[in-house]
């Protein structure tokens, strides 16, 4: 991307990338390579929060550490699967940057967009930059019609009821000012992808400056993010919860 060259570590900003993993031994190595490829002149660290993956994800991370250095790749493992929200809180404790980026390890969040997040933040001074799939320049690949329909339906419902002020509520590729993320994690209680929605809705209600950048989302494992009945019920519960508590 052309913006990669323009992004410099202005004003001594440091970016901590928090990546929760569970059985991602191949993807995490690919991700680290791509992050280093696309963030050349930026001061950053990658904090990998692995929830005791049995596939040897931590072995791979240790090998990657030997190539890139233990000061750039931090492995902060936990003994077992403990959920997404607490994974971010755990990673945040070890973050030394003044900005934090949260992204998935499965490469559905491509590191090539990182420079545009950083650039957007520097241009606008925003506290949060959130990646959105639903604007020009963004998009999704690998979803069937049913998945698209539920996604659009959920989005229209959430916008009609919550007026959140951002176009993509459930996407989780975001850059936060560290203090803001700390504040939000303390006030959010939901789990799973409702957690992502709660974070951005509460941020919007608290009056934090939020900006958006387009991202594309490639679902590589076909049907990995399909929504069943129980997910829809969880979503509706989450929506109601946000309606009465925010």
């Amino acid at each position: 991307m052309a913006v990669a060259e323009e992004v410099k570590s202005k004003g001594g900003n440091k970016y901590s990338l928090i990546v929760p993993t569970y059985n991602e031994r191949l993807n995490i190595a690919l991700l680290v390579y791509l992050v280093f490829k696309h963030l050349r002149d930026v001061d950053f660290e990658i904090i990998i929060v692995d929830d005791g993956s049995p596939d040897g994800t931590q072995d791979v991370v240790q090998q990657v550490q030997r190539v890139y250095g233990e000061d750039r790749i931090l492995l902060r493992a936990r003994p077992k699967k403990l959920g997404l929200g607490t994974a971010y809180a755990h990673g945040l404790k070890h973050a030394s940057g003044n900005f934090v980026v949260i992204m998935d390890a499965d490469l559905s969040h491509h590191p090539k967009y990182l420079p545009s997040f950083i650039k957007k933040q520097q241009e606008t001074g925003a506290s949060i930059v959130t990646g959105t799939r639903y604007v020009r320049g963004g998009g999704v690949h690998g979803w069937n019609l049913m998945r698209k329909l539920t996604s659009r339906g959920a989005n229209v419902l959430a916008h009609t009821l919550l007026w959140p002020g951002v176009s993509d509520l459930t996407g989780s590729f975001r850059l936060y000012r560290k203090s803001v993320l700390q504040d939000l994690i303390e006030s959010c209680v939901s789990k799973g992808y409702v957690f992502q929605m709660e974070m951005i809705v509460r941020a919007s209600r608290k009056g934090y400056h939020i900006e958006e950048v387009p991202i594309t989302f490639v679902d590589r494992v076909f049907g990995s993010s399909k929504l069943g009945g129980s997910e829809i019920v969880e979503y509706l519960k989450g929506l109601t919860f946000l309606l009465v508590t925010t």
Partner: peptide, 8 residues
């Protein structure tokens, strides 16, 4: 619905 087959 924005799709991105090139991105894949």
């Amino acid at each position: 619905f924005p799709t991105c087959p090139k991105e894949a």
